[in-house]
Write a protein that binds this DNA or RNA. Structure first.
Length: 942
RNA sequence: GCCUUGGUGGCGGAAUUGGUAGACGCGCUGGAUUCAAAAUCCAGUUCUUUCGGGAGUGUGGGUUCGAUUCCCACCCAAGGUACCA
């Protein structure tokens, strides 16, 4: 036994132990994973962080601790575990900082990463750091650019239902034009024959191909803020002005790269059934994709050659159409409006354009619209249908036009009521005098010619048949999902590997990648409104030398301008999980051997805030890589868990508005006080404030009178999001310093279920810390050659069983309780047996790896504990021969009675009925019934 | 509005197929040790009570010998989403 009873080594010196093993793991590369092994593989992935300047707070490592426990457990279970970490290091904060200070984002990012790494190392994670990736590293983004080029060179063939190389498209065009091609492409793609294709100029061909490519240039409407020189997301705009600075925002068309993610809408939906992801996350992806089934109907316009295409989910109600509504932005509006209505329509269109999208969405109560004066024609009855415009119809959804059926849709109903438009009733036996009837399941169609008497399903099928016969429509599935804009007017992002010849985009050849981000003087947009890359002096592509050269050399003959936009934040995170498999590969995105071995992620842990961003885009890229034979799996993560947020417990003092007094919580009633945040580090576990420290911290209060209750100042408490401004941020560094990483790891798990959000309260950590001390003590009193008792074995094996089940179920909080119970029991049993303590160290190792390694070494082992086989549970140690039966009366447990387990039903009943407490409970009454479940319970009814 | 998740002591939470509600920890109370403090250890801690007991898992019903667990209706909180045709 290596413990010495000199009083010094008896102590649990976590600082020394943790530093020692962190050094050991780094030096021995204990957690380096190999790309081939006899062992089965297991891939545990964390969402990599953006390295912000603020560093980590206690909420950040929660998921990392859980995944680390799982990874370490899998190593004990004999798996070859891949558990990598890296940085999503392109992003806005570093760029903002650069704009303010001139500091290059690369320098800020490097410093932040260094700090993150220190903090992560301090927590004892078993990451394979040799595989670290950084999205801002050219060696990494070379492959982000490479995937972009693959997308550019691909189109989506609906016939094969997958992405194919653009060459299969052009060979189709050469043979038969595009009439036979079924592709996902722009709506304005013209139809042409093989002969026409052959006659097109090279430029025209390129323009046409751009309509098919999976990444393409398109004019997109954006929120442009001239003052900031940038495009803003919807949530960066408040009341029509920029959130930052309050500058005006206008809608502007810009040519931007887009990703044809809509080609994958159905597959992204279908794929959800094949992966074990949380239901709320699947639901939000499902809603985001927004599939709806219905019909595409074309309405002719009277006295006009134009047609209005419409998407409806209720083609069965087509005979109830009494008007049509177009979005005010609809391109037909100006073409069909009659002279009499022109003024009114123009005024309405103008008024709508001024309102922000958010404004329009928020205001759902006001009904507004204008009649265009034009009439469409009902495809069957040929009756005239007035065409209105209204801002409740959105240009961006469906076709931007609605066939309005007021009896079946509440918004159409409200609109019709408001403007006195007729509301024909086409439902059998339904009253529509008060509201529309939208219940598909109970619909029987009436007053509808050939649809009379049919239900929703039958009528829908019938009407689609008839529409096809007259060539005015067909069944259609519509998706809410839009193609994803992929351009950002920023500096700190991946440059596009694109230069422009005659305005048409050209890809830089693979062998010349990466195209590295140029140096710029200023990180702001140029004076002409170009993105920051417009400030670069060397940003032109020399096709002869295949090199970036000075802009002044641009001759549009051999030297061309490069793309000025950069890629969005999600570009770098859309395939990083695959790149981890072979991160150093310079020849390919990863080797076939590497991905052939690792295949996909077995467990992915991260926040639910990425539900419709990263987690949808990355699935899209993976599906694409699968189509191209680059990835072996359609879905890259079998199982995903969202860790909950850790909230802060803010502390408040109560400042009296009328005096210089600050009241303790219990004295504030009836006083005119306002709560002021106090830094949580100044408050102890009993909510007592260190008043002197508070005065020192907020010097405004140095002369204030703190009114105490029972000699103490008690703060108020409230749960809020952890944030600097609320002074409730708790830093893991301080906790590691005071209690150690093992305590922090255990405590974060002990707080509650991984997936739920829960408040942080540092005070509770003393519980797990003293558990570790008790654990340590247990080993200090160990003696060689002591045989385990039956009790010892029972405690050990029930712990093995429970901990194993807990880890498999991701119920890490209950494991910590189980360890505590185990150590409490073994301590009470005065267990000194190595046969018990040795397996216990392995059980604890995934949760508290430093202390486990140290104990393992003291047990006489020369190698790390990290791959030692997990103890095997043996049920024989838990076999009991008696049971303490709960004796219930009408379902309420009243007393307990110990009886042998082999006792039969009747004997149990007899023993219970004979018991004096039973007679006392019954108090002379005769029981109606006695339920005996052997081994479980006895319930007496009566 | 819709979708999802949740609601259990002063607090975080436990209860694996319907079978002893409140494990484990924090906090609190009392005690031991100490000159004192920290640390450590022991006992108690859902509420209520006439000390026999009674009530109790958001609310109201139901199924059952028995419900935190299953069913119905509702209330509240958090997250997502929205004139989506």
């Amino acid at each position: 036994m290596q413990f010495e009873n000199d009083g010094k080594t008896m102590n649990y010196d976590f600082r020394e132990i943790e530093a020692k093993w962190q050094k050991y793991w780094a030096k021995n590369q204990t957690f380096k994973a190999t790309n081939n092994s006899e062992k089965p593989k297991f891939y545990v992935l964390d969402m990599f962080p953006y390295p912000s300047g603020a560093g980590l707070h206690v909420g950040h490592p929660l998921g990392y601790i859980a995944s680390d426990i799982y990874a370490r457990y899998k190593r004990h279970k004999g798996f070859n575990v891949l558990h990598p970490m890296g940085y999503d290091s392109f992003g806005l904060p570093a760029e903002q900082y650069a704009i303010q200070t001139g500091q290059h984002p690369a320098i800020t990012t490097e410093a932040n990463i260094k700090r993150y790494r220190e903090q992560l190392d301090q927590l004892g994670f078993s990451f394979d750091w040799s595989r670290e990736v950084r999205t801002s590293n050219p060696k990494y983004y070379k492959w982000t650019q490479w995937v972009f080029i693959q997308l550019f060179n691909s189109w989506y063939n609906k016939k094969s239902d997958k992405a194919e190389d653009i060459s299969t498209l052009t060979s189709n065009f050469e043979k038969a034009g595009n009439s036979e091609v079924e592709a996902v492409c722009d709506e304005d793609t013209p139809t042409f024959s093989a002969a026409e294709w052959a006659s097109f100029s090279d430029r025209t061909k390129q323009e046409i191909l751009l309509k098919y490519r999976l990444t393409y240039l398109a004019d997109t409407e954006v929120n442009w803020c001239p003052a900031l020189g940038t495009v803003l997301a919807n949530d960066e705009i408040v009341n029509g002005v920029s959130e930052r600075g309050g500058h005006p925002v206008i809608r502007k068309k810009m040519t931007q790269w887009s990703m044809r993610i809509t080609a994958y809408a159905q597959r992204l939906l279908d794929g959800l059934d094949t992966i074990d992801w949380p239901q709320p996350l699947k639901d939000s992806q499902t809603n985001w994709i927004g599939r709806s089934e219905g019909a595409h109907v074309e309405f002719n316009i009277q006295d006009s050659a134009f047609k209005i295409p419409v998407f409806t989910t209720r083609p069965d109600t087509i005979f109830g159409t009494s008007f049509m509504t177009l979005a005010p932005e609809h391109e037909l509006v100006e073409k069909i409006t009659t002279p009499e209505q022109k003024e009114a329509v123009e005024a309405y269109v103008e008024a709508t354009a001024k309102r922000s999208e958010r404004d329009r969405m928020a205001d759902v109560k006001t009904i507004s619209g204008v009649f265009t004066g034009a009439y469409a024609e009902h495809p069957f009855t040929k009756a005239p249908i007035p065409i209105w415009i209204g801002d409740y119809v959105l240009a961006s959804y469906g076709t931007g036009a609605v066939m309005a059926v007021p009896c079946g849709d509440q918004r159409d109903y409200d609109f019709a009521m408001h403007y006195n438009i007729p509301i024909p009733n086409i439902f059998e036996g339904v009253d529509i005098s008060e509201e529309a009837f939208a219940d598909k399941a109970n619909t029987i169609i009436a007053n509808s010619d050939f649809l009379n008497g049919l239900n929703f399903k039958e009528a829908t099928r019938k009407v689609i048949d008839e529409l096809e016969k007259i060539g005015q429509g067909q069944g259609k599935i519509n998706y809410r999902l839009r193609d994803a804009v992929f351009s950002r007017q920023r500096y700190w992002g991946e440059p596009f590997p694109v230069y422009y010849v005659d305005g048409m985009p050209q890809m830089i050849a693979d062998e010349h990648l990466p195209l590295e981000l140029p140096e710029v003087e200023k990180y702001l947009p140029t004076e002409t409104g170009d993105p920051p890359l417009g400030n670069a002096t060397d940003w032109a592509w020399d096709t002869k030398q295949s090199a970036v050269v000075n802009n002044q050399l641009i001759n549009n003959d051999t030297i061309f301008p490069l793309e000025l936009n950069t890629m969005p934040g999600w570009a770098g995170s859309s395939q990083y999980f695959n790149r981890y498999m072979d991160p150093g590969n310079t020849e390919a995105i990863y080797s076939e051997e590497a991905i052939g071995y690792w295949q996909d992620v077995d467990l992915y842990i991260g926040g639910s805030e990425h539900a419709t961003g990263h987690l949808l885009y990355s699935r899209f890229w993976q599906q694409f890589l699968f189509d191209k034979g680059i990835a072996p799996k359609k879905e890259y993560a079998k199982k995903l868990i969202n860790q909950g947020m850790i909230t802060g417990t803010s502390a408040f003092v109560y400042k009296d508005m009328d005096s210089n007094k600050v009241y303790s919580k219990g004295l504030k009633e009836g006083k005119n006080v306002i709560p002021i945040h106090a830094d949580v580090s100044l408050v102890n576990a009993s909510d007592e404030l260190d008043v002197e420290a508070f005065k020192k911290w907020q010097s405004d209060y140095k002369d204030a009178e703190f009114v105490l209750e029972e000699g103490k100042y008690i703060v108020g408490r409230e749960i809020e999001k952890m944030s600097k401004s609320k002074y409730n941020v708790v830093n893991p560094d301080n906790i590691c310093e005071e209690y150690g990483a093992d305590s922090l790891r255990l405590y974060e798990m002990f707080l509650g279920p991984l997936e739920q959000s829960k408040p942080w309260n540092t005070a509770g950590i003393t519980g797990v810390h003293s558990f570790l001390k008790k654990l340590w003590k247990l080993y200090a009193s160990m003696e060689d050659g002591v045989e385990p008792t039956a009790e010892n074995l029972k405690t050990l094996h029930k712990t093995i069983k429970k901990v194993e089940e807990d880890i498999e179920n991701f119920s890490f909080n209950t494991s910590v309780s189980t360890f505590m119970i185990c150590v409490n029991e073994l301590t009470a049993q005065k267990c000194k047996s190595k046969a018990i303590l040795e397996p216990l160290a392995i059980l604890v190792s995934p949760y508290a790896p430093h202390i486990a390694e140290e104990l393992w070494e003291k047990l006489g082992h020369g190698e790390s504990i990290s791959t030692v086989t997990f103890p095997i549970f043996e049920g024989k140690y838990l076999v009991e021969n008696s049971k303490e039966y709960p004796i219930s009366f009408n379902g309420k447990m009243r007393f307990k009675l110990e009886l042998p387990l082999d006792m039969g039903k009747d004997e149990i009943e007899a023993a219970v009925m004979a018991h004096e407490k039973t007679q006392a409970q019954l108090n002379g009454r005769e029981p109606k019934k006695v339920i005996v479940v052997p081994g479980k319970i006895v319930n007496i009814v009566g």
